[in-house]
């Protein structure tokens, strides 16, 4: 247990403290570091402060910049949570259902981490989410560097109710016209957002990038199936070689991923 735990919005941390799951000896509030509560532009990228709240990210001026992140932030919970919860906190908690995480994964965002004595290092967000790299003692997430793509982006989330709720499945999809790429990430079905790389490359090769950025309608449905199969693979065949059925709940999850990916691509290209 570290001697002190940093706290920003506290929407995850304080819930754990109140439930008696966590008893930090001390808390260090990050709320007054105004430097990380805004954003700035840097070489075609945006440098987002880790202290940006979901409410701030959800506003129209930010939505014009990174629409998918804004949509994810607006879907992230009731207003009380969005007013307090921060981007950095969402990354640090790394919950499977963290709403901004698939967007950051699809955008291939980079974390800029501040360490003791002014040390600074960078880490792709996917490395932290996958557990390939971790925050060390005394380190804080300072900024998140996100490319500005100037193209449609979509975030879609399926929940159990009409009001705010935990994602059953979420899909983030961004177009990168400069690199003629489509990048997609699926959240909530696995401990970290999943990237269906082959499906991305396949659909990018079908898009008419120089014309109206369209694909044939059949390709939308096929993309959805491709993404779903990548995230929730078919079960291994039985010993006698007969194909196995997914359990009904998992099959439903897979259909939902397919529907969301298809809808997301359709909206991005429309």
């Amino acid at each position: 247990m570290p001697a002190a735990v940093p706290v920003a919005g506290g929407t995850d941390l304080m819930a754990a403290v109140n439930a008696g799951l966590l008893r930090p000896a001390a808390l260090v509030g990050l709320g007054r570091i105004s430097e990380i509560r805004g954003w700035q532009y840097l070489d075609g990228h945006a440098l987002l402060g880790a202290g940006l709240t979901h409410a701030r990210i959800g506003r129209p001026d930010f939505a014009a910049l990174i629409p998918a992140l804004a949509a994810a932030a607006r879907a992230a919970g009731p207003p009380q949570i969005r007013n307090a919860g921060t981007l950095g906190g969402n990354i640090a908690t790394s919950a499977p259902t963290g709403d901004t995480l698939p967007v950051l994964a699809a955008l291939e965002a980079t974390l800029i981490i501040a360490g003791p004595d002014g040390a600074r290092r960078e880490m792709p967000v996917s490395h932290l989410l996958a557990g390939m790299d971790m925050l060390r003692g005394g380190e804080l997430i300072g900024y998140v560097r996100v490319p500005l793509l100037h193209a449609p982006q979509v975030f879609l989330k399926a929940t159990g109710r009409t009001g705010p709720g935990r994602a059953l499945v979420s899909v983030a999809l961004v177009l990168d016209p400069a690199r003629r790429g489509v990048r997609c990430a699926v959240g909530a079905v696995a401990p970290m957002p999943l990237r269906p790389l082959e499906a991305e490359q396949w659909i990018a090769s079908l898009i008419d990038w120089d014309g109206g950025r369209t694909v044939v309608p059949e390709a939308l449905a096929a993309f959805g199936e491709y993404v779903a199969a990548a995230c929730i693979p078919d079960p291994a065949p039985a010993e006698d070689g007969s194909p196995q059925q997914l359990p009904p709940g998992v099959l439903h999850l897979r259909r939902t991923v397919a529907a969301l990916a298809r809808r997301a691509l359709g909206r991005a290209l429309s």
Partner: peptide, 15 residues
């Protein structure tokens, strides 16, 4: 029109 899934949900009118 509030779609199933909520204002920020994934609902699609055609479905």
């Amino acid at each position: 029109w509030l779609l199933p899934g909520g204002p920020e949900g994934a609902g699609e009118p055609g479905a």
